[in-house]
Structures are given as structure tokens and as C-alpha cells.
Write a protein that binds this DNA or RNA. Structure first.
Lengths: 130, 130
DNA sequence: TCCACTCGGTTGCAAAATGAAACTGACGGG
DNA sequence: CCCGTCAGTTTCATTTTGCAACCGAGTGGA
């Protein structure tokens, strides 16, 4: 703690949005849910997130404790970005968003079963697939 | 129809974020869930949303079909902003965000029961309080 | 009539965030 | 040596944010 993070209020809704209320953060979480982990994985996503924004978001998410870095190579240091429990628990938010889109936005493809049936615990490393 | 709205991709997650992926839109939805309806109601909310941003968001939400205007006075025309079915269906998203905050952010107050037990249908006008 | 006040915005402006694109540094392969 | 990959960083123009002041149409006294 002593995050230095400031929240607009003590409201749980507003506070959550202070952390994930932007157009990219949950897109990165979505990619992680589907197995993306490296900088390049995210940069290659369908929405073409700008690389500077991506670097910035990964930094904020790490500071916020949504994500942790795991070094997979040294010289130069390279990291895999993995969801923490805090980050994995955003799964219901992502699921709710995708169900809403499926119900109300005509142009989207249906949320994959892998997304709808996932559970936060599935998203954390240490437990490979069953 | 012919929304002029452009989405980054056909992904349901990214598309939902194209509409509600900012720090204010879902705060306004939250206030509506608790009965706020007029411009002044929203402006007086705890987070002190700037009035120009508020006007802009209410316009976008109206265009996006999340909200509709109901005139409650003429000369000068004044409107109540009410959730449509599309907007009310964002309730699960708001609920998921508040549960996440309750679980992971120490400083927030607990989500009110009124929020957690609400259902989208409760939020639509025509049904005054029981 | 004059003054104060409310409500629902709009406007101006500075600061911050975004995004496109080029650049960097440390490798690895041939 | 040259090319390519990976993971960022830098530069810079464009947008978006947010503060604060202003405005028009009315209402309520005194």
C-alpha cells in the first residue's frame, strides 16, 4: 500500500473505474485471459494498441497489482506479464461487458465459450490446464 | 442505425469499451441506478464531474441509445435523463465492478444492497417505487 | 422594478492523455 | 556484415480532460 494512487471518491464503482476505466486496460486483460503474455503478444492484438500506450498500461497495471512481471530472459531482460489474483478477479467484469455487447451490439462476434466459462482461478499461473 | 460510431474491432469486449470505456460514463449510470435523473443531480454527485464533460457524456449516451431524454419542463426545455433497456442492462457490469472493488480495494465503502440486488428491469421508468 | 438565485448548459483555455511513427539497444542467424 | 526480432522509448501533433467563468430563461421576493 501507500500506493500514491488517488481515487476520486470512496465509491466502489468510481474507484474501480479509476483503475480500469479506460479503453485499453481491459482489452489487455482480455488478451491475458486468452493466453497472451509478452509485450509483442499484446501489441499484435486485433485493436493495434499503440506501443507507447501499451508500455504505459503494463506499468500502471503492475503498480496497481493487477499484473506481475516474470523474467523469461536476461540480457536484455524480458518479461512475461501475468495476471495476479487481483487482476484475474476482473474476469466477471470482462464477462459482463461481453455479454452486454452480445445482447446489444449487432456487429460483434459472440463471446467465445473459453471466456464465458472461465473462472478467475483458471487464469493464474502455476496451474497449467487440467 | 447508421451510428457513425466506429468500433476498433468486432470483439465484444473492445466494442463495449468503445462505448463505456472511460472514467465517467459508468459513474453516470451508477447515479441513474440510484435515482439521479437531471443534469443537476449528476453534477452534484460525489466525484464532481465537470459540467462540460457531463453534457458531453449525456449527449454520447443518448446517441448510443443508453439513455433517453424526457422533457419535464418547457421554456426553457429541460430534460430528465432515463436509462433505456440497453443502458439498464449495464447493471451487471456496474455490479461486477463494485464487487471487485469491495474485494480488492481497501478504501471503498461496501456496495449498497440496493445496487447488488437491483435488476435491469427495476431501472426502467414506468415502474415507480413499490 | 430590481436584485438574487436556480437550473442547464456553453465557452475559453491550459494541462494531460492519446496515438502514429520513427528510433534504440541487445541480441540471433546466416 | 547485414538482416530481423523483441521490447520498449522518444518525438510530436492531435484530442480529451477539467477548471472556471459566463449565459439565457426563468422564479421568488422586497
Amino acid at each position: 500500500m501507500t500506493d500514491s494512487m488517488t481515487f476520486r471518491s470512496d465509491c466502489p464503482v468510481a474507484s474501480a473505474l479509476d483503475l480500469v476505466g479506460d479503453r485499453w486496460t481491459l482489452v489487455i486483460v482480455r488478451d491475458m485471459i486468452f493466453g497472451a503474455a509478452t509485450f509483442g503478444d499484446f501489441a499484435r492484438g486485433a485493436e493495434r494498441i499503440p506501443r507507447n500506450i501499451l508500455a504505459n498500461r503494463l506499468r500502471r497495471m503492475t503498480v496497481a497489482g493487477l499484473v506481475r512481471q516474470e523474467k523469461y530472459q536476461a540480457r536484455p531482460d524480458r518479461f512475461r506479464y501475468l495476471l495476479t489474483a487481483k487482476g484475474a478477479d476482473l474476469l466477471p467484469v470482462v464477462q459482463a461487458l461481453s455479454l452486454w455487447s452480445a445482447a446489444h451490439l449487432g456487429h460483434v462476434y459472440p463471446p467465445p465459450d473459453a471466456l464465458l466459462q472461465a473462472q478467475p482461478a483458471d487464469l493464474m499461473p502455476g496451474k497449467p490446464d487440467a
